[in-house]
Design a protein around this nucleic acid. Structure first.
Lengths: 238, 238
DNA sequence: GTGTTTAACTTGTATATACATGATTCGAAT
DNA sequence: ATTCGAATCATGTATATACAAGTTAAACAC
């Protein structure tokens, strides 16, 4: 915990999750929070903005910060979240099977998107995800070898994001995503328990580090009956 | 244009879209922007935060605000956007057919979610969306009659959001969304050109006004081959 | 030339103040 | 009793200052 305002944000999230403040109630006024946390109003406002952006509160001018009902936000694929983080939250039995971990060269489309030379070395990683004994997700990753030089099957099985962020100290910052529905491929048939489904939900992501270098392209293929995407969105005027 | 920082935000968006600043370049420093717009640094920072949140720039400490490549953001279903706004952006031929506009009472599930009495009057609105002559989206809306007392077929055909925001002066603020894949229903068969598809992509949204009252529940059912969802997401630490 | 230090930039955080504007409440005038 | 208005409290916007911390490039010593 470095920042005051992040610390305050985390504290308020805790209080909301513990039921100290429940949906419909208002938080103490900014002025009161200043006294409570012994800080300035701008700092409180930064914390409240984080709460607002993450769907915890809605600020109403003249009234206060109304706590929202976040019951249905337990599956936040919306933000950038890894499979392991998801599985941890859901508390379900899950397993990851690594089917392929090789170095490839010259996947044109991918290189163009990742903004690197056409013959850059890329890790190609294929994993299937098992929940309650069924293989329902197939993840195909392309990762820049120059940024992540060593990568082992064990790290891929555990958590890629953990390894990249904790061990390598790289900071994952943002991603562009696309969700579409496509026909199943031979690969899907081979690695997934499709139960007769003819189509899969495909999430394509381009993941960027905080210095804006793109370092990963992921195609995540889900069996449609087990797919869910939950989102909280604020309206953009304009 | 009321606020300085929104005005500056809009101006910078324009400049980026015109190609004044291209992907990879950095914007002028906050200090320079202060001089250019003759304002304080905090105000500039608010504008830059908006740019960052909307995926236009990435701020890098010590370096500057790097402009991102937003080529693939032309279908921002992610934020709260209405069908008409989407269609306008894509510039395609589209049409809306209103199949039903009635007042119903006591749809239990919906009322519970909208947080209103079990026998509250609700508008039930069923519309199909035609793009290039094919009916590919079926929108089913439930709207609280006490908040939107009058609603005509014409307004439903044009744009519901326009009517609510411009004519009634209500401010739509945020929504909770869920995306899943489901089997087609008789209603889907009746109102959509399914082309043999057995499943549809379903987006369920609960839409809230800025005073946190929920006023609308929408189920938007898309033919899978014409469905796309594009998102820009920043990573939430913790 | 090479390597290191320093200075001058950049953005990030924290604080203080002032005024604008929406919401509520309480009291006075009718 | 009802209505209107003023006071009060809430958040929103704009400004100023100070210091922390990451990046870069020039100056310097060797």
């Amino acid at each position: 915990m470095k920042n005051k305002y992040e610390t305050i944000f985390n504290k308020l999230v805790q209080l909301i999750q513990k039921g100290q403040y429940t949906a419909g109630q208002t938080l103490p006024s900014e002025h009161d929070l200043c006294s409570q946390f012994n800080t300035s109003r701008e700092t409180i406002r930064k914390a409240l903005n984080l709460l607002s952006q993450n769907g915890y509160i809605q600020k109403v001018r003249g009234k206060g910060s109304v706590v929202l009902d976040r019951n249905k936000f337990k599956f936040p694929v919306s933000g950038l979240t890894s499979f392991k983080e998801l599985a941890d939250q859901m508390g379900q039995e899950f397993r990851t099977n690594v089917h392929e971990l090789t170095l490839v060269k010259g996947a044109e489309d991918v290189c163009r998107q990742l903004n690197c030379e056409k013959n850059t070395l890329l890790w190609r990683l294929v994993r299937s995800r098992e929940i309650s004994g069924e293989r329902i997700i197939l993840d195909k990753d392309y990762i820049r070898e120059d940024l992540i030089p060593s990568l082992t099957k064990e790290e891929a099985e555990r958590s890629l994001y953990d390894y990249i962020e904790r061990d390598l100290g790289l900071e994952i910052s943002f991603a562009k995503k696309e969700i579409v529905v496509e026909a199943v491929t031979e690969e899907d048939e081979a690695f997934l328990d499709l139960n007769g489904h003819q189509q899969v939900v495909v999430i394509r992501s381009y993941v960027y580090l905080s210095d804006t270098t793109a370092f990963q392209f992921t195609e995540s293929r889900h069996r449609p009956d087990k797919f869910q995407f939950v989102d909280f969105a604020r309206r953009n005027k304009v």
